[in-house]
Amino acid sequence: MAAPVVIHLEFGGGAELLFNGVKDHHVTLPSQPDPWDVKQLLVWIQQNLLKERPELFVQGDSVRPGILVLINDADWELMGELEYQLQDQDNVVFISTLHGG
């Protein structure tokens, strides 16, 4: 049994509008048989946090194109993307890219 994991989630670039405008979320992922990975985190976010249109956040089992995922201040592509195993106190940022000004 893996222990509960406490992580900090951040949404920005407009992605926070899908979460009632709240940018920072400190969450505890409950204890489960296997360690938490990002793929499971996305499912958990959909079930527990997502207030508005899910199609603007997820596509299939990943995030929708145009949202960058950053784990501990690095592009998730450098960290293993969906397979990355979450550690206690990890910081995960979901950010929509901004166009124009």
Binding site: G14, E55, L56, Q59, R64, P65, G66, I67, L68, S96, T97, H99, G100, G101
Partner: peptide, 20 residues
């Protein structure tokens, strides 16, 4: 490299409807 797949068109907000 960063955005291999285009975002769905309805998600591309711009200043005229977003406010800045």
């Amino acid at each position: 490299c960063l955005y291999p797949v285009p975002p769905p068109s309805e998600t591309v907000t711009n200043c005229s409807d977003g406010g800045v």
